[in-house]
Simulated assay, not measured.
Amino acid sequence: MPISNLKTHYARNFQKSNFNILKLEDLFKAENTNAITKNHKVDFYTLLFFTNGIGKHSIDFTDFNYRSGSILSIRKDQIHKFYLNKETEGFLLCFKEEFLNSYLNTIEVARSIQMFNELLISPKTQLRENDLAGVLRLVMAIENEIFNIRDKFSIQIIRSLIHLLITLIYRIKAEGHNKIQLNKYVKEFIKFQNLLEKNYTETKKVFDYAIKLGFSTKKLNTIVKFVTNKSAKNFIDDTVIVKVKSTLLHSNFSIKEVAFKTGFNDPTSLYKYFKKHTNSTPEEFRKQYKI
């Protein structure tokens, strides 16, 4: 069975404004938790706030440890899974891009999306005690509006509260990160990243992307190295490997079909490429993670 794409599990009660909030302890006590403890994808952005307990959460096959004050940012279509822990408490806030676009300006939407870009900012943020108190006040106010007050003013108030929440988290993340990196080369890097997402099946060559962007290969390498601490070639390879892994686990395609769908001329080319970058064969990887 391939990776599930959860559209109706913990997001089945999405509000009309394309967002939802629930307590993690309620999610973990739900009757059907099998789906969320397996690798899955969702078509929205997720913020996990942990207020109690120690555990871990998997994002793109990497485990992130959490404790009180940890926040995890998960962008839409990332592969992730929960590890159940009855002592864990906190909140899960999820929303779609349409929600952001409905009340934020273009720059604010871009900043919000950047907050979920694991290549620009780590998915994990550990809050200081003072920051945690401020974040929790906003989250609990949102929860109160949704589940208790629910009057004709609630949606507008919720939007304002989430605006404040996202801005606060973005500021906290920026304070704990290289501020220069958040500004210098970000526009150019995101253009490259978006171009790669659309064209990785057509070409995996640095030169081709540099030409499309109007850069020299040296400039493209400088941009990618500054943001990710990787060469452009390594970044391309890492992106392709993530795509191959996702295709392997999110489908029942044969290895031959996976090869063609991810831009390889034949299964042998895929096999060599995948083995080189993961130390396992596509078959071994699928067997290890297949649900």
Rank of each mutant, 00 (worst) to 15 (best):
Lys173Thr: 12
Lys230Glu: 15
Leu195Trp: 02
Thr203Lys: 09
Gln193Val: 08
Asn194Met: 10
Glu175Cys: 12
Asp238Asn: 06
Tyr209Glu: 10
Lys212Trp: 10
Ile223Glu: 03
Lys191Asp: 09
Phe189Thr: 08
Thr239His: 02
Lys225Phe: 04
Ala232His: 02
Arg171Val: 11
Asn221Leu: 00
Lys198Val: 01
Leu182Tyr: 07
Lys179Phe: 14
Tyr200Val: 11
Thr203Ser: 15
Val227Met: 06
Thr203Trp: 07
Ser231Trp: 03
Lys184Gly: 02
Ser231Leu: 04
Asn234Val: 01
Tyr209Ile: 11
Arg171Asp: 14
Lys219Asp: 06
Ala232Arg: 02
Ile180Gly: 07
Asn229Gly: 01
Thr239Glu: 03
Leu168Gly: 09
Thr167Ser: 14
Tyr209Val: 10
Arg171Pro: 00
Val242Met: 09
Ser216Cys: 09
Asn229Tyr: 08
Ile180Phe: 09
His177Arg: 09
Ala232Trp: 04
Ile236Glu: 01
Lys233Thr: 00
Asn234Cys: 03
Lys204Pro: 03
Leu196Gly: 00
Leu165Cys: 07
Phe192Leu: 10
Leu165Lys: 05
Tyr209Met: 12
Glu188Thr: 06
Lys205Arg: 15
Asn221Ser: 03
Glu197His: 07
Lys173His: 09
Lys225Met: 08
Lys179His: 13
Lys179Thr: 14
Phe215Ser: 05
Phe207Asn: 13
Lys205Thr: 14
Gly176Trp: 03
Lys191Ala: 10
Ile166Trp: 01
Asp208Cys: 12
Ile223Cys: 05
Glu175Asn: 15
Lys212His: 11
Thr222Pro: 02
Leu220Thr: 04
Lys179Leu: 15
Asn178Cys: 13
Lys173Met: 12
Val244His: 00
Asp238Tyr: 01
Lys225Tyr: 07
Ile169Ser: 03
Thr222Val: 05
Asn221Cys: 04
Lys218Met: 10
Ala210Gln: 09
Leu182Arg: 09
Val186Pro: 11
Glu197Cys: 04
Thr203Asp: 11
Lys204Asp: 12
Phe189Gln: 08
Val240Tyr: 01
Lys230Ser: 12
